[in-house]
Design a protein around this nucleic acid. Structure first.
Lengths: 341, 341
DNA sequence: CTGAAAGCGCTAACAC
DNA sequence: GTGTTAGCGCTTTCAG
């Protein structure tokens, strides 16, 4: 086996081919204006001939501020539309501002969060944007002291301070349930994730508040938090719909759960009988009959605000940390406007 | 303004705190087995105390093979389910094998492809996996000579040789159209992307072959290639459905187009009258009534095969480049089994 | 089994 | 305006 030393050209080789010095080549590639146009031309020609591409990682090693122009993004699951839409916002923004993104999926695993934070720090990211799975972020304090910048999205950090961008989870749920109540419903089921999860807590609180505000007692038989699996959710819902306790309306506090509800209803031919409002966007919701009334988060705005704040921090902004709340929007499409029988 | 020299600890500091040498610390963090357990312990303690995280980018600078353990992925659009599903396959595989992924979206832009290839090479990726937008990949030859490895997915490269993983585009379309024919259809519309795009060409060829095999003449009025926009597609389709030339079945060769078809049909109450088969998966297709018959690509397999091949190349595999074809699967769900009136 | 010296490709500092 | 020297944080020799 021969050593496979990469034959990729270096700045030094460009320098010697162009008859200039290493430093002049460096100046040319860093767009330093005070370079003789003639030399610059020679350098560029030599670089082209050798197919030279600067080594950014070597550069940032010596660079004063040590910046790598890389930011790490930790999302729930990049294959899910919520995360991938955010990813795309970050990708576009980063690319416009000369940054590169590295991203990873956490899958609600607190250990994975710590692993990926370390992995990304070993690549010396300038900052990290996190939709957290962990329940304690004190471990990030040391990293922050070491110069890494942080921003949180979707859920706030615990035992740690940083910029945060959230949706109006409570208010959005409140609005959804109030919407159902305004059509005459009182038996409104709630489907949500485990109360471990911040957003699930908030959304449940919105449901409770709407019910209380309208003096409607909450029937515990209509409240579901944290199914074990999608199949179990479908089964529970099927049983509920067949029972004499069946609700006349359902609030599904998350897109996968909305899907479960829609499947269960259409399996029993109830999609025009029982009202549904879902939290989060749903692909092709407008193709369904009736259309699905949804409370949508403004992902473009969440993405923009969070990365803007992070890049400002990296650029030296030392103002107080801020929590920004981005409004959700209820969009009536039919399923949420069905009246009780 | 004070210099914000990052105070992040270095190997040297860990060495001096642990009373060992730089090299011993290096050995510990590289899991070299021949280190005195006592020294190792001291090093680990010191590292923990200082919150030391090794700098991988500095390491790969000096490392013999120059490997960065990073691979770049160029996809069509990470916010689209096809790309994000692939991304997730790569993320998992890479993470299991000690690699990191950096990814970007091309949006059918050939220049963006070149830009991102250069950007990723400036980060010294070990290899690049590309779902290409460009129509000429001769420019990659120099990079390959410089030691970068390449793999292509979804579409083959042009004027360049590398490993390729494709779906059975032609065969999948052929099967879809044959399926419609078997239910008695002869007026079958084709909706596809611009023939510039490899997959669109292949899928159209599958349509043509199925029609020819069954001696059905193709009516040019039923063939649509490359709409300008989604709105234009909806409008064209609406006009067609109202005209006397209306088809009895539609083959939509891509998921966005399938959505357009379903919208147009449901707007006119035709979803139970006109048969539809779509290429590619469609989120929540099973919620629709009727269910949507689809030709699905095996993304998990495409992802696995392509990254496996790439990592093998990086590890020194110099065997002949291979093109691997992954079968599609037709899944009857209702919409494709409607008979002509 | 351990450590000192050299140097990866680049930028910073300071001459010239 | 340009070049030289040093050195970023690490791994590689190679000598102990």
């Amino acid at each position: 086996m021969n050593l496979k030393k990469t034959t990729r050209p270096t700045m030094r080789e460009v320098a010697s081919l162009s008859g200039t010095s290493l430093k002049t080549v460096s100046r040319v590639f860093n767009s330093v204006p005070t370079v003789d146009p003639i030399l610059k031309d020679q350098v560029l020609k030599a670089a082209k001939k050798l197919n030279y591409v600067p080594n950014m990682t070597a550069g940032s090693l010596r660079r004063t501020n040590g910046k790598t122009n890389t930011i790490g993004i930790l999302l729930e699951d990049i294959s899910n539309p919520f995360s991938s839409a955010l990813y795309r916002v970050y990708e576009n923004f980063a690319s416009e501002h000369g940054y590169m993104i590295i991203a990873g999926s956490l899958d609600e695993d607190a250990n994975r969060e710590i692993e990926l934070v370390n992995l990304f720090i070993s690549r010396r990211v300038d900052g990290l944007l996190i939709a957290p799975s962990g329940k304690d972020h004190a471990y990030l304090k040391r990293e922050m002291r070491n110069g890494v910048h942080f921003g949180f999205i979707d859920r706030p950090p615990v035992n740690f301070s940083a910029d945060v961008v959230l949706s109006t989870n409570l208010e959005g749920s409140f609005e959804a349930v109030k919407h159902l109540i305004s059509f005459g419903h009182t038996r409104i089921a709630y489907l949500g994730d485990s109360p471990d999860i911040y957003t699930a807590q908030e959304r449940y609180a919105g449901y409770v508040k709407a019910m209380k505000d309208h003096k409607i007692a909450i029937d515990p038989k209509l409240v579901f938090k944290g199914f074990e699996s999608q199949d179990q959710a479908v089964a529970s819902l099927r049983d509920l719909l067949k029972s004499s306790d069946a609700p006349t309306a359902i609030f599904a506090s998350q897109n996968l759960l909305t899907m479960v509800v829609l499947k269960a209803l259409s399996a029993q031919g109830l999609q025009r009988k029982i009202a549904v409002v879902g939290f989060d966007d749903l692909p092709v919701s407008e193709l369904l009959i009736p259309g699905v009334t949804l409370v949508k988060q403004n992902l473009a705005e969440i993405g923009r605000l969070s990365i803007e704040a992070l890049l400002n921090r990296i650029d030296g902004d030392t103002s107080k940390f801020a929590t920004t709340v981005v409004p959700t929007t209820l969009i009536p499409m039919g399923s949420g406007e069905i009246k009780p029988r």
